[in-house]
Amino acid sequence: MNGSAPILETRKLNRFFGSVRVTGDVDFALHPGERRAVIGPNGAGKTTFVNLLSGRLAPSSGQVLLGGETVTALGEAQRIKRGMGRTFQITSLFPNLSVRKNVFLAVAEHEGVAWNLFRSAASHRDQFGRVDELLERVGLADVAEVKAQDLPYGRQRLLEIAVALALRPKVLLLDEPAAGIPTSESHIILTILDTLPKDIAVLLIDHDMDLVFRFAQRITVLVQGSIMVEGTPAEIAANERVRKIYLGESDHAAA
């Protein structure tokens, strides 16, 4: 699309669970700074796809490339070191630790201070500076000392994003960041997404079509594990097959 080399790419990616193919021959490319959404009906294999990208799952065949290098054989931790970041569909935080500690853990791992045994964590001023800056960005500065489990659900989703950003990702995978948030409030997520650094490529999966169409520059439609069509939001909205298979569903639901 914009001529630059893709930051994240898959080639003929397949994944089987038993004899069921949940990801089928997916060729996918994401460019630096791009805002992309992946949509598809329930069970289309969206979360499996994200797990294959992040390294949580290994593909049955095919390749994943990050920054032009093959990372298919690498695990989650190594891909993170190379610039992969993600959030989880089901909130995954450190429930008994404060918001600040949650983000600090990620900053400490990323900046390589997590093996410091004898210096108190509190004296790591540089790292805490970055923690506070991130909390400021996602609007959680006022609850920095609150335990993560005591935050309202919507703000836990924001904390997830802050933790992911702490790793300075080049690619950010957002697995349903607005799940569980009332549609009326999903604009908060959108505002946060708008403030993300422009050079990060962001891949968003969500059921909230309003959010998806306002956020994405391009949309990829997954059906039964394979890419059915890819295009700008306008193209996708106008596509007959998409309307039938995917958007049609919500029309029914609305009716």
């Binding site: 450190f94 008994n96 093996w115 210096r119």
Partner: peptide, 19 residues
């Protein structure tokens, strides 16, 4: 220390620590 905090992180949610 940051090391000790990371141990608590592992206790709370090892999957997230890996991620």
């Amino acid at each position: 220390s940051p090391f000790g905090w990371s141990l608590r992180g592992i206790r709370e949610n090892d999957g997230r620590m890996r991620a």
